[in-house]
Design a protein around this nucleic acid. Structure first.
Lengths: 113, 113
DNA sequence: AACACCAAGTCTACATTTTAGAACTTTATT
DNA sequence: AATAAAGTTCTAAAATGTAGACTTGGTGTT
């Protein structure tokens, strides 16, 4: 890819991180995505996407603390970079522009009879 | 994939077909995508996506006539199915919902100084 | 100190999507 | 018949998406 296009899952992940703000790490991101009701995802799936996004400069991460509850491995918090935000805006703009060019009629569902 | 998620290129293609309406076939779709100014794509790339979308029931195709100008192989016209439209609406809804949950501040670009 | 146990991140490997470019097909023109 | 034009189809590789097993780092219990 040219390097600036986001895959659909990547985009979903970035948006979710922006929604979560300060509290975006693996588990919360996963929960949020699932809660959006859209799909089931695994830890692994998410983390590979996140680390690819980081490689490409769409987000950065920093080590956090362990969970209070019962200990556990330290969290890794994610933050969307400027580049990431720009990519999101661009993706949105392109699609919005396309949606605006579609006449209403053409969106109606057809039923056989 | 589960079977109902659209890849980002797939989505772009479906939207473009809706924009083009009656005149959507390989070449016009390709031109339209490029003209949206977003990217360069090859014939092959587009056609594989289209046929995959057809396999998945997001669009149908029918054979058309050859070009008037100078002949040539008959065109294949594409049309988005109900299922395709629904998938587009869903994808849009999910993202719009996410965008609405992002506070303005969090979208601002950061500059070092 | 040793051990169980929990929360989370990392690794591995395979499936699906994206991509480009070469090859092919059909028709028109000369 | 040969060549050109307008398209589509094939092939193969790179990028993304995905699940599940594995590891690590911490806390609590004895």
């Amino acid at each position: 890819m040219k390097g600036n296009n986001l895959g659909e899952f990547e985009e979903l992940a970035l948006l979710t991180i922006l929604v979560l703000g300060d509290d975006a790490y693996g588990v919360t991101i996963k929960q949020a995505i699932i809660k959006q009701g859209e799909r089931q995802i695994s830890r692994g799936a998410l983390h590979t996407a996140l680390s690819r996004l980081e490689d490409k400069g769409f987000l950065t991460s920093r080590q956090g603390e362990a969970s209070e509850a019962r200990g556990g491995r330290p969290k890794r918090y994610y933050e969307v970079t400027n580049k990431g935000k720009e990519a999101l805006h661009e993706a949105k703009a392109t699609r919005d522009r396309l949606w605006n060019q579609i006449p209403e009629v053409r969106l109606e569902l057809q039923y056989a009879w």
